[in-house]
């Protein structure tokens, strides 16, 4: 719990403001928060898919679930946090 909170704060403080074109004001802060959470969410998803693959090696009935998670493939594009 504390680690999660610490991660949020660090990522948030390190991020830089941005430019956005929209007819409503998405809010600079909102975009940064979104990027932060999306990064964590994407990582969680990725970790979850790796875990599933690992477990399926030991359990044959889970093999069918292997291909369902697109997040596990080619996650080369990391995002902005320097």
């Amino acid at each position: 719990m504390f680690f999660l909170h610490a991660t949020y704060w660090m990522a948030f403080l390190l991020a830089t403001p941005a430019v956005a074109n929209a007819y409503i004001d998405p809010g600079t802060g909102s975009l940064i928060i979104q990027a932060t959470i999306a990064f964590i969410a994407g990582s969680l998803f990725f970790a979850k898919s790796i875990w599933r693959r690992l477990v399926s090696l030991f359990r044959h009935d889970l093999n069918k679930e292997n291909e369902s998670d697109g997040a596990s493939r080619n996650n080369k594009d990391q995002n902005i946090i320097p």
């Binding site: 802060g29 979104q34 990064f39």
Partner: peptide, 26 residues
């Protein structure tokens, strides 16, 4: 975060926020 960047004007040099589609879906 809304207050933190409320007064930030020229600071950003047009560096756009980039979120990979996979992360956005997650």
């Amino acid at each position: 975060s809304q207050w933190k960047y409320a007064n930030d004007t020229g600071h950003s040099m047009g560096r756009a926020i980039h979120i990979p589609r996979k992360n956005l879906m997650a």
